[in-house]
Design a binder for these strands. Sequence first.
DNA 1: TTGTCTGCAAATCATTTGCAATATT
DNA 2: AATATTGCAAATGATTTGCAGACAA
Lengths: 143, 143
Amino acid sequence: MESEFAATLKGLNMKVTPKRLAILEILSKESIYLSPEEVWQLMKERFKSIGLPTVYRNLEDLSNGGAITKVIHPDRKLYYFCCRNQEHHHHFVCVFCRRVEDISYCGNKEIVNEVSTTLKGKVLSHVLQVYGICNSCINENES
Amino acid sequence: MESEFAATLKGLNMKVTPKRLAILEILSKESIYLSPEEVWQLMKERFKSIGLPTVYRNLEDLSNGGAITKVIHPDRKLYYFCCRNQEHHHHFVCVFCRRVEDISYCGNKEIVNEVSTTLKGKVLSHVLQVYGICNSCINENES
DNA sequence: TTGTCTGCAAATCATTTGCAATATT
DNA sequence: AATATTGCAAATGATTTGCAGACAA
């Protein structure tokens, strides 16, 4: 049998390469978001030869394919997170530990309603992301 | 009497300079978001000598002070918009003409509720931005 | 004055690209 | 074999920084 990640790649019409499998494995193992540079550091532990551009390219492709997700960060740099949940949803991001958790709330209905009635416009998409302190970090920081 | 923009600057403890007044004037005159480069181009029409870093620095400071707002853009570059509405609210951005319009909808209550009950976390802030087609662009593009 | 603001030139540095070699199907 | 993937080196380009002179308060 093939791995879950191999299936994911095939589903995206991407060839199943060791590098790609490793990227998916690394990201899915983390509960926090990672920068391309950080993914690269972790990749170096597994491969003698691994280029940073390869990491950038694959993160980009996997993100476009929906296998991983970009995190919206105030510093406007790239960060990725592997999220199993394929349905439309949004994320809660811990500003301390960078943990990402799903939130089911989404005001799409209300948004579409307001835009169509008040602005007479058409909604194509929306982004929603919540920043805060996760449960673990709250507990660790209380006296 | 002093201009509205001068008052804005004083309120932010920023010295009232011609460059700053012009930046505020330019942005407030536009109904679309602008890049620092674009603001710079418009500034060049008014000043014989105007440096791009000055534009960047002032946009940053004005944004931090809340006089203008950053637009969240998929290309992760800087874009600014001058928004009169000082209350917490979010924006609808037209993907065609870059027009920015306020939307009053904000699911803060529901978000805080879900994060606190389901994730046992604490919400610090959130971003919400809606992309779509504004009324003008819909009308212009219909057959 | 006195500290802030600005212009200019140069630096940064995250991200991208070109291309030849390599690996997947 | 045919095509996609990768590594390396180099390029890109938006954004930032250092600093001396100009300006606002």
